[in-house]
């Protein structure tokens, strides 16, 4: 088995596109779930609206990349208001139900045949990323550090992506140590107490939903540019649940939790995949135990098992505070 390949692949996964995308999606979800206690099960919809907003406006209507980004951001804000306005006055579970349904509706609309002229149906929409790559200041060539090796396009995508991750974390850090963030955390603990102190809880929850949605929509842009195509199945409910896993893995309500969580999540997937495949090819695992087709499923099982162990031995997540978690039991 080629361990150096296994580890360089793992390292590439740590800084790769998926980690960037899921870190951004999870940073947004952390604002919702970790800080405000909102159960948004439709984070994928924010990614989809942003990704398709960008793709369609550039590919079909000839807008510039900048205008496409503005349209995507606007889409995310509108979606947050649509989801939040009717539900945030109600009990927490209503938001959960509405968001999970809305995310599926959004995905199916982008997938539908009748809109295929704009969305490309299930094949997705390409022809929009030239603008993004044309402003790439990085000269043609290969770039990397140690075993990492990227071409100029990948380097550009990852640079933009990690810059966005950094700025998002900075924003969350600044907000969550301010009185504004204190109100959000208080809402997570007990809405009625916050109301009794004269704060407009509904308005703060709406702000939180919009902020988290906008952060999540950055993930939509990065998926779109990174893959140079947006496809409906990039935005399935699985995306949302991976993001939840990442938030909890990293430690909810920690600024860097989603970033650490995303990196570890994709490193684990890469490690299990590479190790299993190589062991299979080297003949350590016979066909009777595991066929080549089953490797994909088994690695997910192994990752699931790893996550279960983590929850048992470190329920607060990697960066979480055990003292805080102990308070829940009271």
């Amino acid at each position: 088995m080629d361990w150096s390949l296994i580890f360089s692949n793992a390292l590439a996964a740590m800084v790769g596109l998926e980690t960037v995308v899921f870190a951004l999606a999870a940073i947004g979800l952390n604002v919702h779930f970790g800080y405000t206690g909102l159960l948004n099960f439709g984070q994928a919809a924010f990614l989809a609206v942003a990704g398709y907003g960008l793709a369609i406006s550039v590919a079909n209507f000839g807008f510039s990349t900048g205008a496409g980004v503005v349209i995507g951001l606007t889409g995310a804000v509108v979606l947050a208001l649509l989801l939040g306005a009717p539900t945030l006055r109600l009990r927490a579970d209503y938001l959960a139900i509405v968001t999970i349904a809305a995310a599926e509706i959004v995905r199916l609309v982008f997938r539908s045949v009748s809109l295929a002229e704009y969305t490309g149906g299930s094949d997705g929409q390409g022809r929009f990323s030239e603008g993004f790559y044309s402003i790439n200041p990085i000269a043609i060539g290969r770039y990397g550090l140690g075993p990492l090796d990227f071409d100029e396009r990948q380097t550009w995508v990852l640079s933009v992506g990690w810059t966005l991750v950094g700025l998002s974390c900075l924003l969350v850090f600044l907000l969550m140590r301010s009185p504004w963030g204190r109100v959000l955390k208080a809402i997570r603990e007990d809405e009625d107490a916050v109301r009794s102190l004269g704060k407009n809880v509904y308005f703060y929850k709406l702000q939180s939903l919009v902020l988290g949605g906008v952060l999540g929509c950055l993930a939509g842009f990065m998926t779109a540019w990174g893959n140079t195509v947006v496809q409906p199945d990039n935005f399935s409910t699985e995306t949302t649940f991976y993001a939840y896993t990442i938030v909890i893995l990293g430690g909810a309500a920690r600024v860097l939790g989603p970033v650490v969580g995303a990196a570890i999540f994709w490193v684990l997937l890469s490690l299990t995949d590479n190790i299993l495949n190589q062991a299979k090819n080297a003949g350590y695992i016979s066909d009777a135990i595991l066929t080549g087709f089953q490797v994909g499923q088994v690695r997910l099982m192994l990752v699931g098992l790893g996550l279960m162990l983590l929850m048992i031995f470190r329920p607060q997540g990697l960066l979480g505070d055990r003292r805080e978690l102990a308070l829940d039991a009271r």
């Binding site: 009185p179 204190r182 955390k185 916050v194 009271r330």
Partner: peptide, 19 residues
Amino acid sequence: TFQLTKALSRLTVMQNMLL
């Protein structure tokens, strides 16, 4: 105030007050 106390558990006492 409430009959069933509503302390904001995962905020410190000072943060509770400042709120």
